[in-house]
């Protein structure tokens, strides 16, 4: 197969594309809070499907969205300042929140590293581009490889940066739904005698017996 030699025009076009890529992914200087909010809820619902639908609708109306929805689990992304409305919403439907576990992730350190990575690779890219116009054919090929590699790294860092920013703008909410009228746990035999003795219903019977004494 005949390989076409890159002309000076090709090199200039390639350099121009690289410059556009770099411009579009250069880091902003916005100061970010860079803290992400996570909220894990376990909800006992009378009608898990209806609760699941209303949670997804609530996420939409709050300026967020849902990433997964079923009658067992809903994953939402909502602006953190809307989270206060979640508990009253669930309680209004008669559902019971049995676990509410908020958490925070501090991304400041990682964000600094990501932005430093973008800056250093952008500077390297600029240097390579400045050499490109005066390079011969073999050097141009080497520069192209280097440019691709740097661009990929910058895109990776920029993707991570976008993910962090998204995590700080939208709290990640996971709601696990269980049915109120779920079946009573069974007395399964264990190989270990004392474990067989552990049962909520046996414990209640024992309390009642002691109470009658």
């Amino acid at each position: 197969m005949r390989r076409e030699r890159p002309t000076r025009g090709t090199v200039v076009s390639f350099a121009a594309i690289m410059l556009i890529v770099v411009a579009s992914i250069s880091p902003s200087q916005d100061s970010l809070e860079a803290r992400a909010t996570l909220l894990d809820l376990q909800v006992v619902a009378g009608d898990p499907e209806a609760t699941s639908v209303s949670l997804a609708e609530w996420a939409d109306s709050s300026g967020g969205y849902y990433t997964f929805r079923s009658a067992e689990r809903v994953e939402l992304r909502v602006p953190p300042d809307h989270l206060e409305a979640l508990q009253p919403l669930l309680e209004a439907t008669g559902d019971e929140i049995v676990l509410l576990a908020p958490a925070t992730i501090d991304y400041r350190s990682e964000l600094r590293d990501v932005e430093a990575g973008i800056v250093s690779r952008t500077e390297s890219l600029d240097r390579v581009l400045s050499f490109l116009s005066s390079a011969n054919v073999s050097a141009t090929l080497a520069f192209e490889r280097e440019l691709r590699s740097l661009t990929q790294e910058i895109e990776f860092f920029e993707g991570r940066r976008r993910a962090i920013i998204n995590d700080t703008r939208f709290a990640r909410v996971t709601v696990r739904l269980s049915v109120r009228s779920r079946s009573v746990p069974a007395d399964l035999p264990s190989s270990f005698g004392w474990i067989n003795g552990l049962s909520l219903y046996r414990f209640i019977d024992r309390l009642n017996e002691e109470g009658r004494r």
Partner: peptide
């Protein structure tokens, strides 16, 4: 009996309760 450590009994207990149908709260 049989002599085992906390890790073993914890796992045996957790597995038994989950298999029996209890929902882990915490």
């Amino acid at each position: 009996e049989p002599v085992q450590d906390l890790e073993f009994w914890t796992e045996a207990l957790e597995r038994h309760m989950i298999d029996s149908g209890y929902l882990l709260y915490e």
